[in-house]
């Protein structure tokens, strides 16, 4: 497991809150984003583009799997692994 700094975590959560248009993600890091209707395909793309531009992490679309990127915490972990 890659180590995750608080700064990294906050950066991801900021982007996530933006693309989901909701601050809920910051308070509930284990919320199931797709099931709760916070994220959809469009938000996924927005997330991947923002992450690429602001953090320099490129994630191919096919690599994004809704089961492995289901919650804010899981997304943070996935991104950290690709840093």
């Amino acid at each position: 497991m890659t180590e995750i700094t608080p700064a990294f975590e906050n950066q991801v959560l900021d982007i996530l809150a933006e693309v989901c248009e909701s601050d809920e993600v910051k308070n509930e890091p284990d919320i199931r984003l797709f099931e709760e209707g916070l994220m959809d395909s469009f938000a996924t793309i927005a997330l991947l583009v923002e992450v690429g531009e602001r953090m320099g992490i490129d994630v191919p679309i096919s690599d994004f799997n809704r089961n492995q990127w289901a919650t804010p915490n899981m997304i943070i972990q996935q991104l950290a692994d690709r840093k």
Binding site: S41, F42, T44, I45, A46, L48, V49, I61, S62
Partner: peptide, 20 residues
């Protein structure tokens, strides 16, 4: 995955359109 998301990705990335 292969039509909608790729279309949206290209559009956002290349900033062809502003209105999401």
């Amino acid at each position: 995955d292969f039509i909608y998301m790729r279309f949206v990705y290209t559009m956002i990335k290349k900033k062809r359109l502003k209105n999401r």
